[in-house]
Write a protein that binds this DNA or RNA. Structure first.
Lengths: 247, 247
DNA sequence: CGATCCTTTGATATGTTTCAAGCTTAGTGG
DNA sequence: CCACTAAGCTTGAAACATATCAAAGGATCG
């Protein structure tokens, strides 16, 4: 747990290192990346579909989400992001963004130029792998969400979402025990699961009645982890959290 | 349209080059990759969830699909693959496969060792980018499928699937005009769209009645491309087919 | 030419949406 | 500190899209 030159990017390195082996030189190079800081309010668009992205955003604190809209104006949330996530490597390497990224809570961001990303990747093969792997894990999560929204019923979808967020917050080291932040409105939960806010409400009530969860303001406590996993048909393999977390 | 040392991998190179700029040296290196040929029958598993993949499969002809199963045994098809597609870069770089890949028709495959892939990527930066981009475009397609399955109704979902397959087959240069191969059973269409085979059947009938498509055996003809696009809320941007196709 | 897999059709059941209204909470300004 | 407001949550009743079940009709292929 040595203090590097720039601990600001530490959450990102922590996350990359949790799934891809990185040596001291690699992590040093990542921590030394030049960045620009920013803060954004809830709801702000960090990336808009159609944007020509030239820099890459790291989420330092708070929550964000990716989304896409249908022509009819219905929103689908594609993924939820937290501390340490590279929120638009996906977009920035494909020239023009094919989806939106929005702040869910107040967020702190680091902007890293695309050029700097590609440079450090070119100089350190392990870093290339780590970035690539990061985008592949994102893809794996997308696949699980297709399954979630395509084949599971309301109770399963919502339970599954809760399990994923719980595990990811735990891996990021930002929750105490079974309680974690859940700064989504029920409408947003609906957008993430392909349900209406009304049905989300009723389903959450039943999960509470059944003793699986208990809701606070902007937070959840999982009161029965095993049952919630079962209710959500949840298997964490798709998150690919394989490596032990190094210093 | 020069004939390279090994034209067998040409469909893959064609596809990579259609979205990422590749110089002559890059394409030559790709075409020179060592491979092992194989043929598989419809339904065969090319990759199984949980497999530890050590080589990477290129689809040379025929169709394949990725899928995942719920604990209840429901199958969700995650993507459809055709000529030139790198069918499991996703899996092979993440140690253990998180989804299945199955042959949809009889397929011809080239197996390339993961090692060879990483070597050629390390030696040619443009190749790294091309592979990376390929996985990113896959991810973009996954995102669109989440939207499709999460927010659109049956008619839109099926129309959207048809539009995607039409455009991709056209880009791969394997269809004559508005008619293209569609070797999926209605049950498989249901698995891809989160619907039942019965409902797929009824919806397809309506698309036919409305004059948008006409069905042959294992093929479709799009009789009204504009209306089908509208019916499917289809916008091709997510396919990222940006570069002109070089020789 | 039978057997199996696929498609089609009908009737009924169900999960989820829609609409509409009342309720709670948190934030804001007087 | 108390309205006041807006946003979010909760509830009920009715409508709808899609699922389920079951059976008959067509293909396709050894």
């Amino acid at each position: 747990m040595h203090t590097p030159t720039s601990p600001v990017l530490a959450p990102m390195v922590h996350k990359l290192a949790s799934r891809s082996p990185l040596g001291p030189a690699d992590t040093a190079a990542l921590l030394a990346l030049p960045y620009r800081l920013a803060t954004r309010d809830p709801g702000t668009y960090l990336v808009r579909e159609g944007d020509r992205a030239d820099s890459c955003i790291v989420l330092l604190s708070g929550f964000a989400y990716r989304s896409k809209m249908t022509g009819d104006g219905d929103r689908q949330i594609l993924s939820i992001h937290l501390q340490g996530d590279l929120v638009d490597l996906q977009n920035s390497l494909l020239e023009v963004a094919d989806h939106n990224v929005q702040a869910l809570t107040r967020v702190e961001l680091a902007y890293i130029s695309q050029e700097a990303i590609l440079d450090v990747a070119a100089a350190y093969p392990a870093v290339t792998q780590a970035f690539w792997r990061d985008t592949l894990v994102d893809a794996s999560v997308f696949r699980e969400w297709i399954l979630n929204v395509g084949q599971r019923d309301a109770r399963q979808r919502i339970s599954h979402l809760l399990c994923e967020l719980a595990l990811r917050q735990e891996a990021a080291g930002i929750c105490e025990g079974p309680r974690f932040e859940w700064p989504m409105t029920q409408e947003q939960v609906g957008d993430a699961t392909g349900l209406t806010n009304v049905h989300v409400n009723r389903t959450l009530q039943r999960l509470r009645e059944d003793g699986l969860i208990s809701l606070g303001s902007k937070s959840v406590t999982i009161t029965n982890w095993q049952d919630l996993q079962d209710a959500g048909d949840f298997n964490s393999a798709y998150l690919h959290q394989c490596f032990a977390l190094p210093a």
